[in-house]
Design a protein around this nucleic acid. Structure first.
Lengths: 188, 188
DNA sequence: TGCTGTCTATGCTCCGCGCACATATAGATG
DNA sequence: CATCTATATGTGCGCGGAGCATAGACAGCA
């Protein structure tokens, strides 16, 4: 009652709930669209997108990004390699490590995944005007930077990103500002 | 080059990419937090939240909400019933249908799931000031209403919602405006 | 009464993936 | 230089979640 005259913005629980549903719906759309263009359901889409983003990743770092165990990631790489989408190469300086790369087919597949993802995000935001989109992205950028935990977390966050489409990536910028060398990590 | 002088807001691909990463990160947090308080990984958290939101759901509608096949949902309900979190009751008017309800333990578990979810959303938005949160939620509300497909889609969207915390639910309002009877659907 | 449709439960099978372990390589130490 | 510890990857094994197909019960209709 006493709260009835308070600006609706103060309704924290309601705001969080609505925002949570919104984020979940958009994420559902992204995951479904990405998977629909991937060779198989599940983490394959993320694997392709991550390797497009960061050629030369190791099994260990790919596992972090796609959220599987070490063995699970090895099997995923096995399957994608069998389909001719990924290839394993020896590491330039570390004989234990394999560096993973997309093949030409893999790049095509990855482009399809990322294009499909971009389409659903565009559809999702299509009712907003440019000023609203700018506001939304300004907020997104700041929250991404603030919530970023570490280098490994960045691979999780960026597992379905289109690196080419992300000029001046806020994650890269934040890591750089924190002195975390991402470019050098697991690069061939 | 010609675009160099254009306001950054016009950088559509970059905006969509950053927004997509943001939505995915928040969704990851929500799913991880919810699952951490659920009795098992996977769709159990959604099942508990949906039944808190809508006591009396059928197997069929629960399957839609949690994204499993019919048989998979039956097995999930079997497991949650075995743990004393859910119970099956006969439908009031349709002998074929079972109505699903949370037990007292199930309500406690569901509350835990939703509390954990609310915490991570609050953390995620903690760097924003109240005006920004209001803007974000205004946008979220409009996009949710605009993107809502049908009644079944609403169960997908709301599968991890805290119904009690969502006064004046935009999904309910949109369905009502479209003349879709949600309250009566699968209710006991 | 019989037929079609809907809802639920179950047997069977598949397969993705984690656990534990083996092998190869790298780095540290004496 | 030899040895030990740590790191990275690959593999056998087994588990269990879940989809497919089917059966049975109930509802609606002619």
């Amino acid at each position: 009652m006493l709260r009835a005259h308070i600006d609706a913005a103060m309704d924290g629980p309601r705001d969080r709930n609505i925002f949570g549903a919104f984020a979940l719906m958009i994420s559902d759309d992204i995951v479904r669209a990405s998977s629909s263009r991937a060779p198989e359901a599940g983490p394959a889409a993320s694997a392709l997108a991550l390797l497009a983003h960061k050629p030369g990743l190791s099994i260990r770092m790919l596992a972090v990004g796609v959220g599987l165990s070490h063995a699970g990631t090895v099997r995923l790489v096995d399957r994608l390699a069998a389909e001719g989408l990924i290839e394993r190469r020896g590491h330039s300086t570390d004989g234990r490590t394999r560096s993973l790369y997309l093949t030409e087919s893999g790049k095509v597949a990855s482009d399809g995944v990322l294009a499909s993802r971009d389409e659903v995000i565009a559809e999702g935001l299509s009712i907003l005007d440019p000023a609203e989109v700018k506001l939304l992205c300004d907020i997104a950028e700041r929250v991404l930077r603030a919530r970023l935990e570490n280098l490994e977390h960045s691979y999780r966050i960026c597992r379905l990103c289109c690196y080419d489409g992300c000029t001046n990536c806020p994650i890269d910028a934040e890591l750089h500002e924190r002195g975390v060398d991402r470019e050098g990590s697991d690069g061939a």
